[in-house]
Design a binder for these strands. Structure first.
Lengths: 157, 157
DNA sequence: GCAAAATATTTCAACCTTGAAATTTTAGGC
DNA sequence: GCCTAAAATTTCAAGGTTGAAATATTTTGC
């Protein structure tokens, strides 16, 4: 016997999930907005640029455009524009890859790496400050839940 | 004696908060992306338009542009554009308010109200489906945490 | 080898988003 | 009653975002 589909199982649970989603989205927007302001004020940059630098910082050997797009959960065309601007600013380079002329490896420059290191340090402090009310215990629990949510999602899609 | 500032209190807790933030942001993006796709496919609309309709649906007497902006956590100029397009589509009207010619009350039309009701029904099911792995118990706990986070934020800002 | 399918990326139009400047109207001080 | 400040909104430029179409290259099947 199959279990009934989740969505019909218990109406109250679904209302609770809806409330959860709305609050999660609002919390994310509040924090995101604050980070955007601070990145602009203190480093004259944007959140998407920060995200790209962050991804590249973890992969010193570089990433393909499609790697970036998949990792950041944004479209290919989007990454093109952001990387273009980062190249103009001198924080990133596109290196030719012999063997496949369709692709190029995107890598941080020295300047980009140094710049990101400074931003990351501030960023960590900002998050500590913005999420200061969340206890270490709560943070751990919530974090585990969200990780489970995501791996589950990845497996199904 | 004052307690030490949160950010210096315990480095491990801050790492945990940083991890939490990253996971929260990713979860929000995954769900948001899926909602965007479905709203487009099934109702030929966008998330920001849905958000505006949703806000207006809860306030049948209408809202000022600045009310919408504050409630949705987006800029004034942003709301102007979205409402303009909703007016063009016939889902929303701007009514003159006697007494103050700077402002106008934005309200749902009959069509807008009916349209939103249909979308809201689907939306609730989608969320139930997307967050199906989160137990009712977890949802409630998480939801309470996020609510506390937000009221705390509101009080400080 | 070559045509066709698959892959990686860019381009583009439409929309979303912000923050700052401009516009319009109202409220206050005198 | 004026003049100035305040308030609500719109306008605008720059950038972010998507999805679809276009481009360029590589791989596959035969």
């Amino acid at each position: 016997m199959d279990a009934p589909p989740e969505t019909l199982e218990k109406p109250a649970a679904n209302k609770e999930r809806l409330r959860l989603w709305i609050r999660l989205l609002r919390a994310a927007r509040v924090v995101e907005g604050e980070l955007r302001d601070r990145l602009k004020r203190e480093f004259d940059t944007t959140l998407p640029r920060f995200d790209v630098l962050s991804a590249l910082y973890r992969q010193p050997e570089g990433m393909l455009m499609s790697d970036l797009s998949r990792f950041l959960l944004v479209s290919n065309g989007n990454v093109t524009g952001i990387v273009d601007r980062l190249v103009t600013d001198g924080f990133v380079v596109r290196a030719n890859r012999d063997g496949d002329r369709r692709t190029s490896i995107v890598r941080l420059t020295e300047a980009g790496s140094a710049r990101f290191a400074a931003m990351a340090e501030a960023h960590e402090i900002w998050i500590a400050e913005l999420l200061g009310e969340v206890s270490e215990e709560d943070a751990r629990r919530l974090s585990v839940m969200l990780k489970a949510f995501r791996s589950n999602w990845e497996n199904e899609h």
